[in-house]
Structure formats: C-alpha cells, structure tokens
C-alpha cells in the first residue's frame, strides 16, 4: 500500500503527525504535511488508516499500486 497526500488540500491540522509520526511530518514554514515513509507496513499501516480517517481535509489516501 502506498500513502498519497494531496498537498493542496492539506490544512496543516497535524492530525496525521499525531496518528502516525513515523509516516508524516509538517513543513516548518506553514505546517503543511509531507510523507516520510510512502510504504508503511504492519502496525504503522494501521496508524496511517487512522490518519486517513481523522484528516479533516480528507487529504490522505492509501492506494494499491
């Protein structure tokens, strides 16, 4: 599974960083999120699923490639 982040949609809420800090971080200048690990596995994948569910802008997707 690949993590996709739609950056223009991101509202910098940081919810993904709280849910899955190994996978997401935020830019210093404006808090917009970016992906650290595009192919998480195991428990980390569950954390990403939580991030997908709580992202207030629905900016994160998990896709099969």
């Amino acid at each position: 599974m690949h993590v996709e982040l739609d950056e223009p949609k991101c509202v910098a809420s940081g919810q993904c960083v709280l849910a899955a800090p190994e996978v997401f971080d935020q830019r210093d200048e404006d808090g917009i999120a970016f992906v650290l690990d595009e192919q998480p596995a195991g428990d980390t994948l569950d954390a990403v699923r939580e991030a997908v569910a709580i992202c207030p802008a629905a900016a994160i997707r998990l896709v099969q490639r």
Partner: peptide
C-alpha cells in the same frame, strides 16, 4: 480562507506545540 489561514498555521504544528 486557505491563503489567510496558512499565514498562521506554522506555530500550531505538532512539534512547535
């Protein structure tokens, strides 16, 4: 909205908080 909001998001980033 996004233009203005992004001007004040940085201090509320998780690590800064």
């Amino acid at each position: 909205h996004a233009r203005l909001r992004r001007m004040v998001t940085a201090p509320f980033a998780i690590k800064r908080v």
